[in-house]
Structure formats: C-alpha cells, structure tokens
Simulated scan of single mutants.
Amino acid sequence: MIRPAPLPSSRRALLRLALAAGASLTWPGRARSQGAPLPAIDALYRLRYEGAQAVELRLRAEAGADGHRSLLTTAAIGFVSLLVDYDGQSEAEGPVRDGRPRPETFASRTVRRGDPRTVDIAFAPGTGDVEALRIVRRGSERESEVPEAMRRGVMDPLTAIQAARAAFLAGDTAPLTLPVFDGRRRYDVTVTVGGRTAVAIAGREVAARELRLAVAMHAGFNEREAGIAGSGGWIHGLVSDDGRALPLVFETRDAPASAAFELVTDCGVEACEPAPAYRLLPGT
C-alpha cells in the first residue's frame, strides 16, 4: 500500500498555528447588557495555505439568557486531504452570566493519519480555573505540557469566541488580551480593533471592522511552532459590522508562509448542505 507523504514540518506547524488562531477570532472584555441576545452563528469557512485550500470548517453557536453552546467541525480538503487525513469536532457549553458566556465544559475529538485524540476539560464557571482535564491519544491517557499554574482564569477557544463577540457588540473596542487553553496549548491572543471598512463576500458587500491579532505562546507548543510565532508575523482580521460580529476573513501577515481563514457561506442567509440536525439550546 502506498502511503501519502507527510506535510513538511514547517507547514504542519503553520497549519496548527492558523487553526489555533482561527479558533480565537475576536476578543474578550466587559459584558453586554443583561438580557441582550447574542446573535447565532452558522457559517462555513475554509482555511487556505499558500493559496491552496487546506481545511473546511463549520461553526455553529448560540446563546440564550442562561446558557450557550458551540460546535466546530473541521476536515482536510483539496490537495491537503491527500497528504493528511484530518477531521475533528469540538464542542463547548456553559452558563451566561451578566450577559457574558463563560466556560464550563469543552470536548475535542480529532483524527489525524488514523491517530485518534480526545480532550475533555471542565472549568469552574465563576473563575475559569480548570477543574478537570483528560487527554487521550491512541487509547492511552497523556499529561498536558501546560503547567497547572497556567490553567487558571482561562477559557476554551469556542467559549472565547462567544464571550468576545458579546464584548464587541457591547461596544468594548479597547485592545484586550484573551487567555486560551485547549488542553494541549496555552496562549494569549491580543487584539487591536481598527477602523470600519467593507468586504465583498459571495458577490455582496458586507460592512466590516478591521482587527489586528498577535499570538503569544506560553506552553504546549513545539520549537517550530514557537519559531513561526516569534517571527514577527501577525494576523489581519475582519468581522461583520452589522450587529452580529460574524468572523469574515483572517490572514497572516509578515509570516514565513501565508494562511487565510475565510467565510465561504453564511448559513444564516444561504442554505448550507448538508443541513445539520443540530439543536443547541432548548426552544431553538
């Protein structure tokens, strides 16, 4: 049997960095006013690497007055799918307090080259401290490389997106830093909000807000990943400026290689196939 050749190490590292940053698309801050609903997201995205389609992602998220839940599915596509058999699913849920989503549980299931990996995290909703963590790879439990002292006051990537959107929609546009822990890595995403602009998405013009993201790695990253992040690169992003803060486009700048995370279809506006049998919260 002929096996596909693996991606070069630098490309795998950049792909992991892009996925990590792509999961933290906006920024945290002060809570929205109580009772203000957080608009739902159902959107299809693609990650391009050096101009080639690499990964397809679908993000679905909702929040009610008392709780929130998010689901992110990913799969390798195009030429990359011939090199790396990758697919995964992540889910997060927790309470909404004072209008701000908070972490409680996070579960990630991925398969890469036939290697299944799972991560389960339980957070204390009031503090963001990690109360329980379980990492399994190839049927065996593994220890996280992130010290316990760095697992306090954090949130998972999906809850971070929801909390960040809530802060932005409340008008909090000051530069802020988001502390993220996904079980394997601990990193900060510092976001600076820029001006208003417009971007063409699927033939229509969408009002947008510019962002600048910088990723600071603290633990769990290998030497190549740290080298890429330390190269002075940053990420230019756009979110919709229409009362939803929908992630639109995120592209690396001044990095050793180019990667771009782009909205393909806003499933809240256009039908996405296959239609998901997906109910986030009671009554939705």
Rank of each mutant, 00 (worst) to 15 (best):
L15W: 13
A18W: 08
G22W: 14
S24E: 04
W27I: 04
R30V: 14
G35N: 02
P39G: 02
A40N: 00
D42S: 04
R46G: 00
L47V: 11
G51W: 13
A52S: 08
L59K: 03
E62N: 00
A63T: 02
D66C: 02
R69N: 00
S70G: 02
L71R: 07
T73A: 08
V80P: 06
S81H: 09
V84H: 08
Y86A: 02
G88D: 01
G88L: 00
E93G: 00
V96C: 02
A107D: 15
V119P: 06
V130R: 00
S144K: 06
R152M: 07
I161L: 11
I161Q: 08
Q162S: 14
A166S: 07
F168I: 09
L169R: 10
V180C: 10
D182Q: 09
R184N: 12
T190I: 10
V191D: 02
G203N: 12
V215R: 05
H218E: 12
A219R: 06
R224V: 15
G232E: 03
L238Y: 07
D242E: 12
D242A: 05
G243M: 09
G243D: 07
P256H: 08
A259I: 14
A260P: 07
A260S: 11
V264K: 00
P274F: 08
Y278A: 04
R279N: 03
R279G: 05
L281H: 00
